[in-house]
Design a protein around this nucleic acid. Structure first.
Lengths: 240, 240
DNA sequence: CCCACGGATTGATCTGAGTCAAGGATTCCT
DNA sequence: AGGAATCCTTGACTCAGATCAATCCGTGGG
């Protein structure tokens, strides 16, 4: 648990990324940390929510549920991602910690006031929201038009990409990563059943697109191949 | 085609909603109108895009396409909606006019500069983007977890809701509306085929959930019933 | 050590939506 | 009026993914 924003691991990616030292000091005064264990619910859709927060470490999911229990994940919250909406009283989604997690919280009212005064925060939040909107739209293509196999390949590719971004390692050669989600969570992400997820993961393994070590650790021998399977075909690497 | 922002039909809902007269004057100087005919493409994904814009009148769609032709709508642009992203060089989606349409465009660079200086614009854009993100997430539930029948009912409900919002009419009693989309566009919206859309529209009609006058005009005798069919069950109206 | 439990796999079967194909209804053009 | 787009509807058949069900595997507890 960091205490000083200067030492914060998400300092340069979170809502506060653009803040200057003076502004940071102000934020320090209204922030507080909260810890969650894997599996714990942060908040239920519809509940009063008088804070907003950044994920400092760990992973959480944003899900929507129908009365009959069908659930769809609508967001995957990774370190530096923002939770909550300024000006909104009640949570719009269920937020559940998927791993042990630390959040940096701000009481909503003071945060809103501060946002009015410091354009740096609003600017950064706009940028982050636009990125999330792009991600949501990519996801809509996956949900609406891709086959089960393509969906699984897409998910693995997305995780590989953000791992690469985080670790600053390019995607030359084989990539190794850990799935941060259970088969069931993957199913909720992709609009499938867990059985189908399991089958398609097995199929990709059988076909040599990925290999598995345990249930969670995935090795991708050829990223280009994976992207093909995802139907992404952004062609990944240039020749030569 | 309005010329004076003061007379603009979307004055109080678009990005410029919060601007004061002085700021509006500045916007007036960099704005220009463009007209599109139904069916015309505004921009292709990947193309250079050196403007951003507001839809003044008419309707456009935002779509993503895979190489093999599968397409998914990722946004439906109605009057006052914003097109383009500050700081982005190239279009991320195809934008196609579905009806005759008028756009109020701003060259991107001057707009970006102005955004830096006038928080009112950035604030409003943030708010609009957050709304779009919410809409995208609701849509994800529709795409990932609803049946074809529920998808159609959901789409009709969404259109009914925004019509109600626009015309300031509540949703008491029967609601009449025009579908702004062809069956094919509805299919692209919902991740279905046009045949399935046609069948399910017929089924909802057969079952008395809606009635049709021509192909496009829909009457909803009982909104509660429609919401049930959509699986939304936000229960719509209170008793008494 | 044995058992229980949660997550994962795999098989058998069913079904909702896709595919392929044949028309019908409007509207526009000549 | 005739022809031909464009859009829509409907039917017959197929198949990808859901459902139902049995089993496996790793881990933690008594």
């Amino acid at each position: 648990m960091p205490v000083d924003c200067g030492d914060c691991p998400i300092r340069h990616r979170a809502v506060c990324a653009r803040c200057e030292s003076e502004e940071l000091e102000h934020l320090e005064q209204i922030k507080y940390y909260r810890n969650f264990e894997a599996g714990q619910t942060v908040i239920w859709s519809g509940d009063q929510m008088d804070f907003v927060a950044s994920v400092v470490s760990g992973i959480a999911t944003l899900t929507q549920t129908m009365e009959d229990g069908r659930t769809q994940m609508v967001g995957l919250l990774l370190p530096s991602d923002f939770v909550g909406r300024p000006g909104r009283e009640r949570a719009a989604y269920n937020v559940v910690a998927t791993s042990d997690m630390v959040m940096c919280c701000f009481r909503r009212k003071p945060f809103e006031q501060m946002m009015m005064r410091t354009p740096h925060i609003a600017q950064r939040l706009l940028e982050m929201t636009l990125d999330e909107l792009d991600a949501a739209r990519e996801w809509m293509l996956v949900l609406g038009r891709k086959t089960a196999r393509e969906k699984i390949a897409s998910l693995i590719a997305i995780i590989a990409r953000r791992d690469a971004a985080l670790n600053m390692q390019g995607m030359r050669g084989p990539v190794v990563l850990d799935l941060p989600l259970t088969r069931e969570a993957m199913a909720d992400y992709l609009g499938l059943t867990l059985e189908t997820v399991s089958r398609q993961v097995s199929a990709l393994k059988r076909d040599g697109v990925i290999s598995l070590e345990g249930k969670r650790r995935v090795t991708i021998p050829d990223m280009g191949r994976l992207l093909e399977e995802a139907g992404d075909d952004s062609d990944g690497g240039m020749p030569a």
